[in-house]
Amino acid sequence: MQHSTRTLASRAVTAFALAAVVIPSLAACSDPGANAAGASPAAARNGITYNTSPEQHRIRDQKDPAAAAKVPAAIAKDGKLTVATSAGSIPLSFHATDDKTPVGSELDIAQLVADKLGLELDVKVTSWESWPLKTQSGEVETVISNVGINADRVKLFDFAGYRAAFMGFEARTDSTLQVNGADDVSGKKISVGSGTNQEKILLAWNKELEAKGKAPARLEYYANEADTILALSSGRTDLNLGPYPSAVYRANTRNDLKVVGKVNAGWPSTTLVAAVTQRGNGLAAALSAAIDSAIQDGSYAKVLERWGLSEEAVPSSQVVTAENFAAYKDAASKAVAK
């Protein structure tokens, strides 16, 4: 691995930490489900022009021979990198205005990685719940779909980090709510995905509230993101907790919603979004090298800027496995404590 000489301390800012998941939804980190067909291509209030059309004109890159050399022979044999994505949450991964083409920042990252490895990008849209089985069976070679690392997942998969992982609290624009911690959600109705990292955070906060004799938040569950946002905008819920990039997108493209809080997906520690591979097959090292190469030549930053995600950039990638997860968890915990 190219980064083996770096100390854990220097990598604390990008450390991967425990982000417990509720079984049986091993796949859950967010619960994408909205379709973006019909979304406006006009410049948003944050200055980003979100291209939701099938014609993406993606940022492309050159092959990195050193990274390509790390690809396992069995994967390189067919000349393709088969990538699973859920196509469920704008601007991360969603269907374009033709209602069939997967687009978004995750697809752009996947393209950069494939380019760096000298492979053709082969995208497989899959349901969020299906990616673990499809990865383990070899049906897909990697998953690039806003998946966060946690203690349960590292038992079954290897990871290559590529983006910070934050969750955003959303409220209607006429709301006076501001969420900085558990006390701010006492008694509030909050939509959240079942079995997700964000649900884990809210359940922990509810325990804090109950210990203080305060009313816990009331968690509301909906089948998909579209129903979730409709409930929020119509006043049936007070807050929504979901992927921060999607919350930012809605705050900048709608007039009725705003971001009122932000929390790391690995609370009370930190975690990152990562590409997922079969455990022990060696592909994670190649993906990490490809991501680092894209970071170094600037194409990675251009992709994140294109989708308004620059604040979630990481300075480098790192392979995370069951063998080194505890060390990263410890490093992240120390970083948060400072």
Score class of each variant (00 low, 15 high):
M1L: 14
S4G: 04
T7P: 08
L8G: 03
A12D: 07
A12M: 12
A15D: 01
A20Y: 01
A20E: 14
I23Q: 12
P24K: 02
L26T: 09
A27N: 05
A27H: 00
A28W: 08
A28Y: 09
C29V: 15
D31I: 13
P32F: 07
N35F: 13
G38C: 06
A39P: 03
A42W: 09
N46Q: 01
N46S: 04
H57N: 14
I59K: 09
D61F: 02
K63P: 01
A69N: 10
A69S: 10
K70A: 15
V71E: 07
D78R: 07
D78V: 06
T82D: 06
S86W: 05
S86F: 11
G88F: 04
I90K: 00
F94M: 04
D99R: 01
G104M: 07
L107P: 08
A110T: 03
G118H: 06
T126Y: 15
W131E: 15
L133C: 09
G138S: 10
I144P: 02
S145N: 08
I149M: 05
I149V: 03
A151R: 07
A164V: 07
F166E: 09
G168W: 08
F169P: 11
R172E: 09
T173G: 11
T176H: 11
L177R: 06
N180T: 13
G181H: 12
D183R: 08
V185T: 03
G193N: 00
A211D: 10
A217L: 04
L219K: 00
L219V: 10
N224C: 05
A226D: 10
T228Q: 09
I229D: 15
L232T: 04
L232S: 03
R236E: 14
R236C: 05
R250E: 05
N255E: 11
L257D: 12
V260W: 02
K262L: 00
G266W: 07
G266V: 00
R279S: 07
A290S: 00
I295K: 05
G298H: 14
A301Q: 13
E305D: 11
W307F: 03
S316R: 02
Q318Y: 14
N324C: 08
A335R: 15
A337Q: 13
K338P: 05
K338F: 11
